[in-house]
Design a protein around this nucleic acid. Structure first.
Length: 322
DNA sequence: AATTCGGGGCC
DNA sequence: GGCCCAGAATT
């Protein structure tokens, strides 16, 4: 934790302690930034917003093809809002956390209703949209509208933790002190380049597992290096996966995405064997049944999907929302 | 502050 | 096989 004096010094404009950071990271970013479609100067605010939703907890490599398809199919919020949410869920594919697709669809609807179909630029208007939290609101305001918002994501937190504070990893959850530090480090100008640059440095060099310190522009002034690369203060506890409701829900969603129409409840709940000859979603059903979930877990998971609006009941069974 | 919520690729 | 990834919403 830097002293208040250090933070104030870091906050000062060119000529003081933190100014070199801006130049070092800015120049590094200019040379090393990946070419990503949502960074193209011609990319719309909507395109940037879609990317931010997809990138919540999902790596860039997996987002790219889905993002391309979405923007081709729904080039503006109104196009998505005009379709049933089930289409958004189907097109979401295997990106994970499908409630994000539901919220993005709801956000597009809200944009049509409240903002004449245009992605709003203001922080408060963005925060009021479904699925937009502090990070995403700041990211859209900064990357799409070049407003001086302080963007703090997992990459940026890690770079700050190491380079400035001297810790191997940031705390498990964003703290007020971390946000204050991020605000203090913001340059007076080129805030978009700064936000994107620190994030990119965290993604490509200052990575969580095996940081490539030899390629880092901050090597000579990294507090973590100076401290001798101390180990993390805590052990991150991994997320359980095998056997969880999330795994069962995911397998059920895969069935619903693949199916053309409603899927009989008995098939999802495993109360009947797979008797459909040539059913187009037979493989997905088999994967679901292979999980060996209990009757209670199957019922609980399906109820959860219905309660969350990820699926809906019709007389013939269960399907994606129409 | 702690939980829940997907899924895949890499060390 | 654990770990990580441009988080948000709920409790």
């Amino acid at each position: 934790m830097p002293t208040p004096t250090a933070v104030r010094a870091a906050a000062a404009p060119p000529g003081t302690a933190a100014a070199p950071l801006h130049g070092l990271i800015g120049r590094w970013f200019d040379e090393n930034a990946r070419t990503l479609p949502w960074r193209d100067p011609g990319c719309s605010a909507w395109g940037i917003m879609v990317s931010e939703f997809m990138l919540q907890q999902t790596p860039v490599a997996r987002v790219l093809p889905v993002w391309e398809e979405w923007l081709r199919r729904w080039p503006e919020p109104a196009a998505l809002a005009a379709e049933p949410s089930g289409e958004a869920l189907r097109a979401w594919g295997r990106l994970g956390y499908p409630r994000r697709a539901l919220r993005l669809h709801a956000a597009a609807t809200a944009i049509v209703e409240r903002h004449e179909g245009e992605v709003p630029a203001g922080r408060e208007e963005l925060l009021a949209l479904p699925g937009v939290g502090t990070y995403t609101a700041a990211a859209i305001a900064s990357f799409a509208f070049e407003l001086p918002e302080t963007v703090v994501d997992t990459n940026i937190r890690r770079v700050h933790a190491r380079a400035v504070t001297g810790n191997a990893l940031p705390s498990p959850a964003l703290t007020a002190a971390e946000f204050k530090l991020a605000e203090a480090l913001m340059p007076e100008e080129d805030t978009k380049r700064w936000n994107a640059g620190v994030m990119e440095l965290g993604a490509l060099v200052c990575t969580a597992r095996s940081p490539r310190c030899g390629e880092c522009p901050l090597l000579d002034r990294c507090a973590w290096i100076a401290a001798g690369k101390p180990e993390p203060h805590y052990v991150p506890k991994g997320q359980a996966w095998a056997g969880t409701d999330r795994q069962v829900r995911g397998a059920m969603m895969a069935v619903l995405r693949k199916a053309e129409g409603p899927v009989p409840r008995s098939l999802l709940l495993g109360t009947v064997d797979l008797v459909h000859d040539g059913a187009e979603h037979a493989v997905e059903i088999a994967k679901l049944q292979a999980l060996g979930a209990s009757d209670e877990q199957l019922a609980r998971s399906l109820d959860g999907l219905l309660a969350d609006g990820l699926a809906e009941n019709v007389p013939a069974g269960v399907r994606l929302p129409a």
